[in-house]
Design a protein around this nucleic acid. Structure first.
Length: 831
RNA sequence: GCGAAAGUGGCGGAAUUGGCAGACGCGCUAGAUUUAGGAUCUAGUGGGUAAUCCCCGUGUGGGUUCGAGUCCCACCUUUCGCACCA
């Protein structure tokens, strides 16, 4: 037998055998519990990168471990296969159709995944760009349209000039396109939206169900949803004979409102100034503000600019006339697009009031200050708690009490309504692109906007289209697609030519896996609920808001439709870290890319997997190291040699392990074996810390080598060596599926190692009959003694006092205290 | 500015409940084996030191405790997220 692991032959052999025997088919044994482990499916860009290798290796360890633990395991894979790169490839090179490009890439990446030994059930493969999938994406759209959760409206939207399409708010990062980094414009367009805001409250509240989600992600989502409780207050504008509504979180400061501000886009702006001397000046200001980039305008440190409109509103609490301004710091997209300004207690209003010489009126007195707060003398706004002043009959109440009393009284009076506001906007799902699921809507002159009937789905994406180099969607020009008949009246009609955001596709794929080949519905309820929700989801933190929020929203919609019992899609979520090289994310431009293909060719799949799982815990970033890979290879060869070089011993070993005949070294090895089983089991199942699990197997390997080195073949405990060999490769099998399968068969077993039971540890084996007690003097380790495990406290203390070294320390002072931690340590306090 | 996480040998990392800091791996040193190299095996490897004694040591400074990498306070650095949301 070779003295190194011949990975090429072995991998080839087992890949074929596993496929033939359908080894990775999802288990459906009714006696077993179900477990659903899922990694985020990839965009089929063409090749796997190291980040993929990492996330899929992590998921594969969990899947394999759970199978061995006796679960039915659903571990599927698919392709998030609609999206721009396919279309860009077609535009760049007219010969390749996006479909062809995508399908080629899928075939290639699938092969790479298989080569890595990932145990997916490919019978459940899901491809979002395939008709049998997007048919159901469209079906969901139709249901949402019927339930008024999908609607069309004109609004100011984010436009990426490079991608030639609109973007959802979530896809704009620091004013730039999340995909390509181009700065986005604002455009007024009619677009389709999903009413995710209806679910804001539930998306927020149900975070409490996600106990094992990273706190960080919940906070990010919480900030994004941005719930704030306050009140809607109505001000009268006598000049216009109109009412002006504002949202405020501080109705308790109403007496301190000294001016109002409208967003430049506010519809009242033109009306208020029409025909006045301010008209031209205001129009000019509005134009300028609208041209200001979103980024600059919403940045906290950009200058607050404003202009008096010449009009006044009446403060309903005291009848005071207060001026109405327009200013760039008020946004049309939040609240009502208008605010009441309380400069004494809001820093933004304070800055603005100072700049434009507006009165600052204090209405909250800080508790720790005796002198009454004077607005004119304030240096900064005071936003803390305190007692009300200058507020009529509410004087003396604290902020909380005032909030209660005033909202109650003023609600009765009719100008205040308690209200909760959200920062979250509805999800803009239209995209002006070709390679996506067409929005199944028809426009009829007579019947208006009509959903395509379910039985006519899918609305197929026409194949023969021309890609314009400007990137404009080719669908508009395909007459056979655009022109259709109204499903309602049969008259001539036109189709919607926008396609759906690809995040719609990925918002329900995890349910489809449970019933991937269903032709009559997206999935049957019983099949979904058999597996769903996902027990363990794994993916990149970059989806903390986008995909994860949309998927949660969709799950709740599907739940409300009665199609699943689940209300949250992912019970546990692991955010895996990035793979770095030389301290930076791998990227072509930096030239620090390590190609998985080359690593696989040089070292094989097991070594690649083992290194990437060993080098760092899964949630941390991982620094790639070529030498580290060699270390992983070295370890696998050590395991290989241990088994193959001791085959004779193992094969002729007696079947029964007789602990009674263990000598000391054997006892020690046996204990290490069971300690390793315990450690590996807990590290995989409780902590997902594969790095320390692997190190425990390495320790076991070191221990068995040192045992074998100590003695001649004749007095080796054969049964023990056999036991160690078998358990060791069982422990290693989720990490390194090929070498362990080969060794398992070399040990003359017929069945696959991956269908074996996970080894249990024997708690008795971990019991030591001798313990090492650490002796400290004033907290510093000075000596150690070995004592029998069943020793009493008195006996330990006596032994400690008798220790030679300790005596000399005791001679130097007076013993004032003795602390004994059973089985571990004695600390003597000497003064 | 606000919020969160992190900071441990030459490097990646471990220490799970406040109880022997540095497991495991890389690298390095010495030796064995080899014609030689590679591979492999053995021993060593936080700093100071002749030393197995001793002293110092987990970003910095303080504190709590018999005992602190771990808990508390302040600060520094790095990373991430948020940043006129009324």
């Amino acid at each position: 037998m070779q003295d190194y692991y011949p990975f090429q032959e072995v991998e080839k052999k087992w890949l074929a055998e596993w496929e033939d025997s359908n080894l990775h088919k999802t288990g459906v044994d009714p006696e077993k519990e179900n477990y659903y482990v899922l990694e985020m499916f990839p965009y089929p860009s063409g090749n796997l990168h190291m980040g993929h290798v990492r996330v899929y290796s992590i998921g594969d360890v969990i899947a394999r471990y759970k199978r061995m633990k006796g679960y039915n395991v659903l571990h599927p894979m698919g392709w998030d296969s609609f999206g721009l790169p396919a279309e860009n490839a077609a535009i760049k090179n007219g010969n390749i159709h996006p479909k062809e490009w995508t399908w080629d890439n899928i075939a290639n990446m699938k092969k790479q995944m298989q080569a890595l030994g990932l145990s997916y059930d490919w019978d459940r493969e899901v491809t979002t760009a395939a008709e049998d999938y997007y048919k159901w994406t469209q079906w969901f759209f139709v249901q949402m349209f019927k339930n008024k959760l999908a609607y069309k409206k004109e609004s100011t939207v984010n436009w990426c000039p490079s991608c030639e399409t609109v973007l959802a708010n979530e896809q704009v990062v620091n004013g730039a396109c999340e995909r390509c980094g181009t700065e986005v414009d604002q455009r007024d367009l009619e677009q389709w939206f999903f009413k995710i805001t209806d679910y804001a409250e539930r998306l927020l509240d149900d975070h409490q169900l996600l106990e094992n989600w990273p706190e960080k992600v919940k906070i990010m989502q919480k900030n994004w949803i941005g719930r704030s409780e306050g009140a809607r207050v109505t001000f009268q504008v006598p000049d216009l004979e109109k009412e002006l509504e504002v949202f405020t979180t501080r109705p308790d400061t109403l007496f301190g409102a000294t001016y109002m501000v409208l967003a430049p886009e506010h519809p009242y702006v033109a009306e208020l100034t029409a025909g006045t001397e301010k008209e031209a000046e205001v129009a000019e200001f509005v134009k300028k503000a609208r041209k200001q980039k979103e980024m600059e305008r919403t940045s906290a440190d950009s200058e607050k600019l404003g202009l008096f409109t010449g009009a006044y509103a009446v403060n309903p609490v005291n009848g005071e006339k207060i001026p109405i301004y327009i200013a760039n710091y008020v946004l049309m997209s939040y609240g009502t697009g208008a605010i009441m300004a309380v400069p004494a207690h809001d820093q933004r209003d304070f800055d603005f009031a100072r700049k434009y010489g507006i009165e600052i009126k204090a209405v909250i007195q800080p508790e720790d200050q005796e002198q009454e707060l004077q607005g004119a003398e304030m240096e900064t706004a005071y936003s803390g708690s305190g007692k009300l002043i200058n507020s009529g009959k509410y004087n003396g109440l604290n902020v909380k009490e005032a909030f209660q009393a005033m909202t109650a009284d003023f609600s009765e009076a009719g100008f205040v309504k308690v209200e909760t506001n959200y920062r979250l906007r509805d999800w803009l799902i239209s995209r002006q692109r070709y390679w996506g699921a067409p929005i199944p809507i028809v426009y009829c002159k007579k019947c208006g906007t009509v959903a395509v009937p379910e039985e006519e789905l899918p609305v197929e994406l026409p194949h023969d289209v021309e890609f314009s180099p400007t990137g404009e969607s080719p669908l508009k020009k395909v007459e056979s697609f655009v022109n259709t008949t109204c499903p309602h009246c049969g008259g001539p009609a036109t189709r919607e030519t926008d396609t759906m955001d690809t995040f719609v596709d990925s918002s329900w794929y995890f349910m489809r896996y449970a019933d991937a080949n269903n032709e009559s519905s997206p999935f049957a309820k019983d099949k979904v609920d058999n597996w769903f929700p996902v027990d363990q989801y794994i993916g990149g933190i970059e989806h903390a808001i986008l995909h994860l929020l949309y998927a949660r929203f969709f799950t709740k919609v599907v739940h409300d439709m009665g199609m699943t019992d689940a209300i949250e899609p992912f019970t546990n979520w692991l955010a895996q870290g990035m793979v770095l090289k030389d301290g930076a994310k791998m990227s072509k431009s930096k030239g620090n890319v390590v190609d998985p293909k080359e690593i696989l060719a040089q070292y094989g799949a097991d070594t690649a997997r083992l290194f990437i799982l060993f080098a760092a815990p899964p949630e941390k970033d991982l620094e790639w190291s070529d030498q580290g890979v060699e270390g992983a290879e070295r370890f696998l060869n050590r395991v290989w040699r241990f088994v193959t070089e001791n085959l004779e011993i193992i094969k002729t070993a007696p079947a029964e392990l007789n602990q009674a005949e263990f000598d000391q070294p054997a006892q020690k090895l046996y204990r290490t074996l069971h300690a390793s089983i315990k450690k590996v089991t807990e590290d995989i199942s409780e902590r997902l810390n594969f790095n320390t699990a692997i190190s425990a197997i390495m320790e076991l390997t070191n221990e068995v080598y040192s045992y074998l080195n100590q003695r001649s073949k004749a007095d080796t405990n054969q049964a023990l060596i056999k036991e160690v060999a078998e358990k060791m490769i069982l422990l290693l099998s989720p990490f390194a599926p090929f070498i362990t399968e080969e060794l398992w068969h070399i040990l003359a077993y017929q069945n696959s190692i991956h269908t074996q039971q996970w080894p249990d540890f024997d708690p008795q084996a971990l019991q030591k009959d001798e313990l090492t007690i650490v002796i400290q003097i004033n907290g510093k380790v000075r000596d150690k003694i070995t004592v029998p495990a069943d020793i009493s406290e008195e006996e330990v203390k006596a032994k400690v006092m008798a220790a030679e070294k300790i005596k000399s320390y005791l001679a130097e002072g007076k013993l004032v205290k003795t602390i004994y931690i059973p089985g571990k340590l004695v600390n003597l306090v000497v003064k």
